[in-house]
Design a protein around this nucleic acid. Structure first.
Length: 860
DNA sequence: GGATGAAGAGTGACCGGA
DNA sequence: TTCCGGTCACTCTTCATC
C-alpha cells in the first residue's frame, strides 16, 4: 500500500525527484491526495497540497483507523496498545483527563498546540522534531522544490522545509539544552530520584514498623527495629546476636536488602514499591526468607560498600529512627563487615558521590574534627575509610562548585562596587582542592543557588553585620558546623560597602573556570540595575515582553520588586512580561552574560559601555530584525506588495521602532483559534485579490461585472461571509463593497490608479492616505481586517441583521489585535471610516452601484 | 523474484521533572 | 502551569536470508 501509493505519487510528478530514504514516513499510505487546488506557496506538480476539510477528513480517518503513530494498535487488543491519546494534538478524542488544553495553534504546521516551545507556540510533534533536528549537522534535502507547505499532514514529507519553517517562525535552537546541560540535568534528576526512593523506603519501613509495633509481633525484641545506627553499632555483637535470635526477621531484612540492591541496580526501585508495597512491611505474615538467600545474592563486598555508602551518604535525614540505616548495618553484620578499600580501588559511583547530602558531609566533618557527638547517625569508629574517602570527595566536589559560584558572585558583587562605590569585603580566592574549609558550607539541604547566594548577600550587607570569623575547621578542612545565615534581621535593599578594589586574582580564577553561567543573588542584580544600568543602559524592550518604549532595566527591576521572582501568571500577557526572569531573557537583553562570552568579558563590556546604545541599530542584528519581521509575517500575513515597493527606502528609527513594538504587542495579544482561522481566510482573500491582478488595475476597473463576481467569490473564502444568509450577503455587497474596495485601494495605492476620477474625488481619496496612521498598511493583517469590517459595517439606520452586526464586531475586535497597542479600532473608525464611506459613496455614484442582476448572479 | 525478519531511523504522544 | 528532555509505541525503509 505504502509503496504503491508512493510510487503512484512519484510517477505522477513531472520532475524527477531523488527522495531521501526517510523523507516520507508513516501514514503516507493512508493519505489521499486531493489536488483540488494549490496555494501560492507550492508547485502542484511537485508537491501534494492538503487543504481544508479534505485534509482533515483523511487525517481523522487515519487517526480513527489506529494507524497513526502513537495510537496503539487500535481497539482490537493489539500487542502494544497501551498508550492512549489524550485530547491533545491531532486528535478528535481521547479519554485522558488533562487540565492542559491544546487551544493554541502550532505556528509551524497549524496543529493544536499547548504552549511555547523553543520560543514559539508549537505542537508536540514540531517541538520534538525541532529538538531532534535543529542541531543536526547533516544536511537535509528537500525532495521537492524547497517550497513545501507545512501543515499537519505534509509536515512529515519534507524535513528540510519543516525545519526551515521552524526557524522562520522564530524557533531558537539555542534554547535546546546542550549535551552538557542535558547530562547535568539528568544527573540531578537521578539524584533527586534516588533521594525520593530513599525517603519512600524510609516511610514504608516506618509505616511497617508502626504496624508491627502495634501488633507486638516481636515482643522479644521490640526495640531492635527502632534503634539508631549508632546505638546498634555501639551494641556491636550483641546486636548481631540479638538479630540472629530472630532469624526469620533478620532474614527478612536481609532478603529485603538483597532485593533493594537488586532493584537499585536495575533502577526499578520505584516499581518495586509500587507493585509490592506489602513485601516491605514487617508484617506478621509467614514469609520465609532464609539467610542463605542473602549470602547467595549479595556476595560482593563492593555491593555492600556501595549500599552502605549510598545509604549513609545519600540519606538526607539524620534521624535516629532512620530505619533504612538500621537495615544496612544489620545486613553487614550478618554477612561480613565491608572491607575498607582505598577509594581508587573501590570507587563509589558518581551517583553516590553526587547524592551526598549535607548531613553526611557534616557527619564526616564531625568525624574529622573529633567531635563524634555531632554525628547524625554514624560513630567515627565504624565509619569505614571508604566512606570517609567518598564523603571527602563529595565535600570537595561540592566545594569546587561552591567556590566557582562564589567567585562568580563575588565578581558581580564587586562589579556593583565599581559602579556605585560602596565597600565590599574582599573575598579571598579559594583553592577548591586544598581549602574547602575556607568556604562556609552551604546550609543543609539547600539548593545550590541558595548556597552561593547567601554568602554574597552576607557580603553585601557587610556593614550591617560584621563578617563572621572564619569557621573552625577539621583536619581536612571541613567546616565544623553549618554556617548560620548571616543575613541581617532587616533585609530590604542591601547596603553596599565601599571602595574595595576588584580582586584581579579572583577575576582570573573565575575566568579560568568552565562555568559559563553564574547565579547572581537577586539583591545584587537589583543593585546592578538600580545603580548601574539606569545610567548606562537605556535599551528599550523590543521583544514585546514589556510595553513599547519602556526601559528594560526599569521593567526588570519592577518585576523583581513586585513579583519577587514569581512567574506563575497564567495569561499570555503576564507570562510574557515575566519571561525576563529567565536566564535566557536576561542574556538576550544583555543583563547577563551569554554563551558567547564569559562572565568576565561580559562584566567588562558592561562596565565599559558608557555610550547610550541605540536599541535598533546596535542591540539587534540584521538577522534578528529579519527574524522579528518573519515572526510578524507568520501571524499577520506577509507584507503587501505596496510595502515591498517601499522596503528599500530607509526607515527612520522611530518608524522602525514603532513597528517592532507593534509586532511584539500584537504577539502578546494572543489570537484565539477562531481568530487565527479568520486571519488565514483574510490572507487567502488578499492573495486571491493580488493573484488575479486586481491590485494592479485602475480603481474604477474593479467594478466590471467580471471583477465584482471575482471579488464576491473571493469573499466567499471567508466563513464569516459564506455562512451569512443570502439576503444579508447581497445587502452587504450592494453597499459595503465600495467601502471594501476603497480600503483595498488604500492598501495598493501605488499600483491602483485613480484614473477616471475627478480631482475633487481624488482629493477625498488622497486624504485617506496622507494620515500618519496610514503607515499601518505595512501590516496587511490590519488592512485585511479593516476591509472586512468596512464591508460589514452598517450605519445604525440600516441594520441588516444581527449576524452581520456580530461579524462586524468580530472583525473590529480583530482589527484591534492587528493594530499597534496604542491605536484602537475605535480610533481608526473615527478617523477613517467616515472618509472611507465618503470615498465609497463617490464610487457608488460614479459606477451606478451594483445591479441586482449581478448580485443574484454572484450570490445565488 | 517474492516472502520474511532484523535492524535502523524517524515520528508523535505521553510523561517526569525543574 | 510551563516547558524541557526522555521514553515508548509505532511506522517505514533497507538489507540479509531463505
Amino acid at each position: 500500500m505504502y509503496n504503491t501509493r508512493r510510487s503512484a505519487y512519484l510517477n505522477s510528478c513531472s520532475t524527477a525527484m531523488e527522495l531521501p530514504p526517510q523523507s516520507m514516513h508513516q501514514n503516507w499510505q493512508d493519505t489521499e491526495y486531493v489536488n483540488t487546488s494549490c496555494n501560492n506557496e507550492i508547485d502542484c506538480s511537485d508537491m501534494p497540497v492538503f487543504e481544508g476539510k479534505d485534509d482533515q477528513r483523511f487525517y481523522d480517518e487515519e487517526q480513527n483507523n489506529g494507524n497513526g503513530s502513537g495510537s496503539g494498535s487500535g481497539g482490537g487488543g493489539g500487542k502494544k496498545g497501551g498508550r492512549k491519546r489524550a485530547n491533545t494534538t491531532s486528535s478528535n478524542g481521547g479519554d485522558k483527563e488533562s487540565k492542559r488544553t491544546a487551544n493554541k495553534v502550532c505556528r509551524v504546521c497549524g496543529d493544536k498546540a499547548f504552549s511555547y516551545n523553543f520560543n514559539v507556540i508549537t505542537c508536540e510533534s514540531c517541538k520534538a522534531f525541532f529538538r531532534r533536528n535543529a542541531n543536526k549537522e547533516k544536511e537535509i534535502r528537500c525532495p521537492f522544490n524547497e517550497q513545501c507547505d507545512i501543515n499537519q499532514v505534509s509536515r512529515r514529507f519534507c524535513q528540510r522545509c519543516r525545519l526551515t519553517k521552524c526557524f522562520s517562525v522564530g524557533m531558537k535552537k539555542e534554547w535546546i539544552m546542550s549535551e552538557e546541560a542535558r547530562l547535568e540535568k539528568k544527573q540531578r534528576v537521578e539524584e533527586n530520584r534516588e533521594r525520593r526512593m530513599m525517603d519512600a523506603m524510609k516511610c514504608a519501613i516506618d509505616e511497617a514498623n508502626m504496624e508491627e509495633d502495634s501488633e507486638n509481633s516481636f515482643d522479644e525484641a521490640p526495640k531492635s527495629s527502632q534503634i539508631s545506627v549508632r546505638q546498634y553499632l555501639a551494641n556491636g555483637e550483641n546486636s548481631v546476636q540479638h538479630q540472629n535470635m530472630n532469624n526469620g526477621h533478620v532474614g527478612h531484612q536481609s532478603r529485603q536488602m538483597d532485593q533493594y540492591n537488586e532493584m537499585k541496580d536495575n533502577n526499578k526501585m520505584l516499581n518495586y514499591y509500587q507493585d509490592e508495597p506489602s513485601d516491605m512491611g514487617y508484617s506478621n505474615q509467614n514469609y520465609d526468607y532464609p539467610i542463605s538467600s542473602c549470602a547467595s545474592s549479595c556476595p560482593e563486598p563492593m555491593d555492600q560498600t556501595d549500599y552502605c555508602g549510598a545509604t549513609t551518604i545519600a540519606d538526607s535525614g539524620a534521624s535516629p529512627s532512620n530505619k533504612v540505616a538500621v537495615i544496612a548495618p544489620a545486613h553487614t553484620a550478618v554477612e561480613t563487615k565491608p572491607p575498607s578499600l582505598p577509594i581508587e580501588q573501590n570507587p563509589l559511583p558518581p551517583s553516590v558521590l553526587f547524592s551526598a547530602s549535607m548531613s553526611a558531609i557534616q557527619d564526616v566533618a564531625a568525624i574529622m574534627s573529633s567531635e563524634p557527638n555531632n554525628l547524625g547517625m554514624c560513630p567515627p569508629d565504624v565509619v569505614s575509610d571508604n566512606l570517609i574517602n567518598a564523603a571527602q570527595v563529595a565535600v570537595q566536589a561540592q566545594a569546587i562548585v561552591n567556590h566557582t559560584q562564589q567567585l562568580a558572585a563575588a565578581v558581580v558583587a564587586q562589579q556593583v562596587v565599581s559602579h556605585i562605590g560602596p565597600v565590599i569585603p574582599n573575598v579571598a580566592p579559594i583553592d577548591p582542592l586544598i581549602a574547602p574549609a575556607l568556604m562556609p558550607a552551604p546550609p543543609s539541604i539547600a539548593p545550590m543557588t541558595t548556597a552561593i547566594a547567601d554568602p554574597i548577600a552576607a557580603a553585601i550587607v557587610a556593614p550591617m553585620v560584621p563578617i563572621a570569623p572564619p569557621l573552625a575547621v577539621g583536619p581536612l578542612g571541613v567546616p565544623l558546623a553549618p554556617p548560620m545565615n548571616p543575613a541581617p534581621q532587616s533585609l530590604g535593599i542591601p547596603i553596599i560597602p565601599k571602595e574595595i578594589p576588584v580582586n584581579d586574582k579572583l577575576l582570573n580564577e573565575l575566568e579560568k573556570t568552565n562555568a559559563q553561567m553564574v547565579t547572581v543573588h537577586k539583591d545584587v542584580l537589583m543593585k546592578l540595575l538600580q545603580n548601574n544600568s539606569r545610567t548606562s543602559c537605556t535599551c528599550t524592550c523590543q521583544c514585546g515582553r514589556y510595553p513599547p518604549g519602556s526601559c528594560i532595566v526599569d521593567e526588570v527591576t519592577k518585576d523583581l520588586i513586585n513579583s519577587g521572582g514569581s512567574s506563575n501568571s497564567s495569561n499570555a500577557a503576564d507570562k510574557d512580561e515575566t519571561r525576563l526572569d529567565t536566564t535566557e531573557d536576561m542574556q538576550m537583553n544583555g543583563l547577563l552574560p551569554g554563551e558567547s562570552n564569559s562572565s568576565i568579558q561580559w562584566l567588562s563590556q558592561q562596565s565599559s559601555a558608557q555610550a547610550v546604545v541605540d536599541p535598533i541599530s546596535v542591540s539587534m542584528s540584521a538577522e534578528e530584525v529579519e527574524t522579528q519581521r518573519e515572526r510578524r509575517d507568520s501571524i499577520f500575513g506577509a507584507y503587501s506588495t505596496a510595502e515591498q515597493t517601499t522596503a528599500t527606502q530607509p526607515k527612520s528609527v522611530q518608524e522602525e521602532t514603532f513597528w517592532e513594538h507593534t509586532v511584539a504587542e500584537n504577539e502578546s495579544r494572543e489570537l484565539s483559534e477562531e481568530e487565527v482561522e479568520k486571519m488565514e481566510e483574510l490572507n487567502e482573500i488578499s492573495n486571491k485579490w493580488m493573484g488575479s491582478g486586481m491590485d494592479n488595475i485602475p480603481l474604477l476597473e474593479l467594478f466590471t461585472d467580471e471583477n465584482i463576481k471575482a471579488i464576491i467569490d473571493a469573499l466567499k473564502l471567508s466563513s464569516a461571509f459564506r455562512f451569512l444568509p443570502k439576503g444579508d450577503k447581497r445587502s452587504i455587497v450592494k453597499r459595503g463593497i465600495f467601502n471594501y474596495c476603497v480600503v483595498k485601494w488604500m492598501q495598493h495605492k501605488e499600483s491602483m490608479s485613480l484614473d477616471g476620477l475627478s480631482d475633487e474625488v481624488k482629493k477625498d481619496f488622497n486624504a485617506l492616505i496622507k494620515r500618519q496612521e496610514y503607515t499601518y498598511r505595512v501590516q496587511p493583517g490590519a488592512f485585511n481586517t479593516l476591509a472586512m469590517s468596512a464591508l460589514l459595517y452598517n450605519t445604525s439606520d440600516v441594520v441588516i441583521s444581527k449576524e452581520v452586526y456580530m461579524e462586524h464586531v468580530f472583525f473590529k475586535n480583530l482589527l484591534d489585535k492587528n493594530l499597534p497597542i496604542k491605536v484602537s479600532s475605535d480610533a481608526i473608525y473615527n478617523n477613517y471610516l467616515p472618509c472611507i464611506i465618503k470615498a465609497g459613496n463617490h464610487l457608488k455614484k460614479i459606477t451606478g452601484g451594483i445591479t441586482d442582476r449581478l448580485l443574484r448572479n454572484a450570490i445565488s
